[in-house]
Structures are given as structure tokens and as C-alpha cells.
Simulated scan of single mutants.
Amino acid sequence: MNQKRTFGTILTILGIIGIIVGALAFLGIGSIGLSKMNSAVPFVVGLIFFLAGINLVKTTGDRT
């Protein structure tokens, strides 16, 4: 596994975590003290990380 794919995987995992935190904050579940508008920030950042990671993994070719 090369460095680009590894970095893409890390970005994807961080994106999933950001999306989950944003959704939980929007729903008011847990002890995340964010308002409805402020909960959009981790969701959008997580979405950007997720899409960038998926794109990086998808476009990186394998070396043989």
C-alpha cells in the first residue's frame, strides 16, 4: 500500500468520524454542546474529508 492510498484511507476515516459527530450534534445526542447551526461545521468538514479520501483512494493506481 503506497502513501497516497494510506493518506486517503486516513482522510476517509476522519471524514466518517466528522459526519457522525455532526449528525449527533444536530440531533442533540450525547454531551456535544453545539447548536443546530454550529453542528453543520463538523458535518461539512467531515464530508469534505470523506469525499477527498474516497477520491484519493479511487484515483491512485497500484504499482506492480
Rank of each mutant, 00 (worst) to 15 (best):
A23V: 15
A23D: 09
G22H: 02
T12V: 11
F49D: 10
V44K: 10
T9D: 04
S35H: 12
M37K: 13
V45E: 11
P42L: 04
G33D: 15
K58F: 09
T6K: 15
V57F: 07
P42C: 12
T6A: 09
M1I: 05
I48C: 13
G18Q: 07
V41M: 14
P42K: 12
T6M: 09
M37C: 09
F49Q: 05
K4Q: 09
I17W: 10
L34E: 12
I32M: 12
T9P: 00
I13M: 14
I13Y: 13
G61D: 00
F50T: 06
T9I: 06
S31C: 07
I19W: 10
T60N: 00
S31A: 13
I16Q: 08
G61K: 05
T59P: 00
L11Q: 00
G8I: 01
V41S: 11
F7G: 01
L14H: 08
S35P: 09
I48D: 04
N55C: 08
P42H: 10
I32H: 03
L11S: 02
M1S: 07
T64S: 03
V45P: 03
G15A: 03
K58T: 04
K58S: 09
G15Y: 01
I10M: 08
F26P: 02
P42V: 10
T9W: 03
A52M: 13
G30D: 04
I19F: 10
G28Y: 03
V44E: 04
D62F: 03
T12M: 10
N55D: 07
A52P: 08
A25P: 01
L11T: 00
F43E: 06
T64C: 03
T12Q: 10
L34I: 08
I13W: 10
I19D: 07
A52D: 05
A52R: 09
L11G: 00
I20V: 15
L24A: 11
G30A: 02
L34C: 11
M1G: 07
L24K: 03
I54F: 07
A23H: 12
I17M: 13
G53A: 13
L27D: 11
V57A: 02
T9M: 05
T59M: 04
M37S: 14
G53V: 09
T6Y: 08
M1A: 08
G28N: 02
V57E: 02
F50S: 05
R5C: 01
A40D: 02
I48G: 07
G18V: 10
I54D: 01
V44L: 15
R5F: 01
T60C: 01
L47A: 15
P42W: 03
I29Q: 06
F7C: 07
R5L: 02
G33N: 15
G61T: 01
R63L: 04
I13Q: 11
G15C: 02
F50G: 05
S31M: 13
R63H: 05
N2H: 02
R63N: 06
L27I: 13
I32N: 03
F26M: 15
T12K: 11
L14N: 06
F49T: 02
G28S: 09
I29A: 14
F43N: 06
P42T: 12
G8P: 00
I13R: 12
S35A: 11
N2V: 00
F43P: 02
F26N: 08
